[in-house]
Nucleic acid binder design. Structure first.
Lengths: 115, 115
DNA sequence: GCTATAGTTCACCATATGGTTAACTATGCG
DNA sequence: CGCATAGTTAACCATATGGTGAACTATAGC
């Protein structure tokens, strides 16, 4: 039922393995951003950031929409859901019971006001 | 509170990005295995599997214990927990509500008899 | 039309990754 | 001892990855 063979998980986990790309996703967590806005905080050239965005696009983690001369990127989190599904197979190995996840959900349930 | 800067997440996600390594973890989900037992199902040389095991060790995802001439590997899932913590930041982007996780936990709560 | 800004593409480079084969060490056992 | 089994190490190879600078296209605006 979980299974999740290679093709898609490969790209997702691989995309997430780079700190620059994780940081880009974190930037997008706060809303849509243009490419140059995304690039600004990173101490590397624009083409380098472009390559990271390509990797994120290939993994289906971002979408780009061109408006005028600027390209706006948005987060696409469905692939992340698949990785969580896969990872949760191992839950019982990191905790006898799932206290932490329980606590997390309790915390979340009473804090839906943001967004 | 979540943050999780680079160093450890890099290695964990990178280790998970290879299908052979994910399959090894899946093998270990069913209990401890020797290196040659782990290697058998994979269509590659033993040294190749050894390299994958090195990557998994460096990421803290497996532990090895030598007994006699055989080395037994066991799953170490704490790093996986960290990746889940990081990924759950994005939960609200893949679902308006967290129905799926809810359902998962409900399912799990009444099925603790295995292991 | 000219120029500045936004993004893209290309050629290049160093290093990492994932595999191989061959040769080695270490333990079990008849 | 002698040999088989378990695992390790080393040298090598092809390709992927993450970065660079230079040159290009496309839109905005005076």
């Amino acid at each position: 039922m979980v299974n999740y063979a290679p093709p898609e998980l490969d790209r997702t986990f691989s995309a997430l393995s780079d700190p620059t790309r994780r940081r880009i996703l974190t930037q997008l967590l706060q809303g849509k951003r243009s490419i140059s806005e995304l690039a600004k905080p990173h101490r590397m050239s624009l083409p380098a950031v472009m390559k990271h965005l390509d990797v994120l696009s290939d993994a289906g983690l971002i979408a780009r929409k061109k408006t005028g001369r600027t390209v706006v990127c948005t987060l696409q989190a469905k692939p992340l859901q698949n990785t969580v599904d896969w990872l949760l197979q191992y839950r019982r190995f990191w905790e006898e019971r799932f206290d932490r996840l329980d606590a997390y959900l309790a915390h979340v349930q009473q804090g839906e006001s943001d967004s």
